[in-house]
């Protein structure tokens, strides 16, 4: 599986996801600078975390209008898996690949901590190695991860099984206390209609190494390695 990681000025979690992909696939991902006009052939396109353009405007808004995003969209339309993590999730929602927006955390503060996520569907290239209902522990690190969409959109996401992850307690309960940022219906990650585009705020890439406290994110990358082999 060949992954391509798109870099914007201000991306800063590219190495984390690079290492996680390499560990899972045994292959070095490509690094693509946002101004490179040609997006090489890739089995997976990743938009990593960070603060693209400093996020001095609405998070992800500048990067979403970068020329390379037109090509990313075209590839996504043709079925190439596109993964947006954290700032990447913000960018692909701003670019219209996914519905909804990421608002400022309910506390108005940045939070870096481990959270529990309930895997809501195993029906995707990202989650096939998990069981629906399985609880995993991975970190979040963001200031603007409060997912919002109107009620119809949320109903539709739920009805079509496109909610991939929700914030939950260690036992898998959905509670306000365990909702890391105030997201609507505790949504942490969603899929597009074709189920090839995933955006999520938490960082499974930072939970793939036993030395760093959790390996619960390994299933995420193992899913991709298996599905796209």
């Amino acid at each position: 599986m060949q992954a391509a990681i798109i870099l914007f000025p201000g991306s800063n979690r590219e190495q984390d996801v690079h290492d996680a992909l390499r560990r899972a696939t045994g292959k070095e991902p490509l690094r693509i600078w946002h101004r490179d006009s040609d997006l090489p052939k890739a089995d997976l396109i990743v938009i990593p975390g960070g603060f693209s353009y400093g996020d001095y405007l609405r998070c992800g808004a500048m990067a979403a209008h970068s020329p390379i995003m037109r090509e990313v969209k075209a590839r996504a339309d043709k079925g190439t898996p596109v993964l947006g993590i954290c700032n990447g999730f913000q960018i692909i929602t701003e670019a219209g690949l996914l519905p909804g927006v990421l608002l400022t955390n309910q506390t108005l503060r940045f939070h870096c901590k481990d959270v529990h996520l309930r895997v809501e569907t195993s029906q995707s290239v990202y989650t096939r190695r998990y069981n629906a209902g399985q609880v995993i522990r991975v970190p979040v690190a963001h200031h603007d991860g409060n997912y919002f969409a109107d009620a119809d959109t949320l109903d539709r996401l739920e009805g079509e099984g496109r909610v991939a992850f929700r914030y939950c307690s260690a036992d898998g309960e959905i509670t306000d206390d365990d909702n890391a940022n105030g997201s609507a219906r505790a949504i942490a990650g969603i899929l597009n209609e074709q189920r090839n585009v995933l955006g999520l705020m938490p960082h499974p890439e930072d939970a793939t190494d036993p030395l760093l406290g959790s390996t619960d994110g390994q299933g995420f990358f193992a899913s991709l390695a298996e599905a796209l082999a």
Partner: peptide
């Protein structure tokens, strides 16, 4: 310290 990203870089 939870307001600081203490994990980035992995």
């Amino acid at each position: 310290w939870e307001q600081y990203d203490h994990l980035v870089m992995g």
